[in-house]
Simulated scan of single mutants.
Amino acid sequence: MLFTDRAILDGPARITREGHLLAVARAARANNVQDYLPHEIGQAPKPDGTPYRIFRPEAEVFARDAVQSAAHRPITVDHPAEDVSAANWKRLAVGDTGGEVLRDGEFLRLPIMVMDADGVQAATTTHQEFSLGYKADLDMTPGTFGDQSYDGVMRNIRINHLALCRHARGGAELRIVDERTSPNGEMKMSKIKIGDSEVDLSDGAAVAVAVGALQSRLSDAEGKVGTLTAENATFKTSIEAKDGEIAALKSQLADATDPAKVKARDEARAKVVDAAKKIAGDKLVVDGKTEAEIRRAAVEAKLGDAAKAMSDDAIAGAFAAYAPLGDAKPQVQPIGAPSSLGDAADVRNQARFSRYAS
Rank of each mutant, 00 (worst) to 15 (best):
D137S: 13
H127E: 08
V77E: 03
F107H: 15
R103I: 14
V114C: 05
L92W: 04
H79I: 03
M113R: 15
V84Y: 04
D78S: 11
S85T: 14
I112V: 15
P80A: 13
A117M: 10
H72Q: 09
R91G: 08
T125N: 11
V67T: 08
E82T: 11
T125Q: 13
T125C: 05
D139Y: 08
A66H: 09
P142H: 03
P142K: 04
Q121G: 06
H127F: 04
L110Y: 12
R64F: 05
R103L: 11
V84E: 07
E106L: 10
E100M: 10
I75F: 08
D78K: 09
D65L: 09
G133V: 09
S69C: 08
A59M: 12
A136Y: 02
H72E: 12
L92F: 14
E129G: 01
G98M: 05
S69L: 13
F62G: 04
S131I: 06
G119R: 03
S131Y: 07
I75T: 02
A123K: 01
P111A: 13
A93C: 11
W89A: 09
V77L: 07
K90Q: 12
T126G: 03
G105V: 12
P142N: 02
H72S: 12
F62K: 02
R64W: 06
T97I: 04
G119K: 02
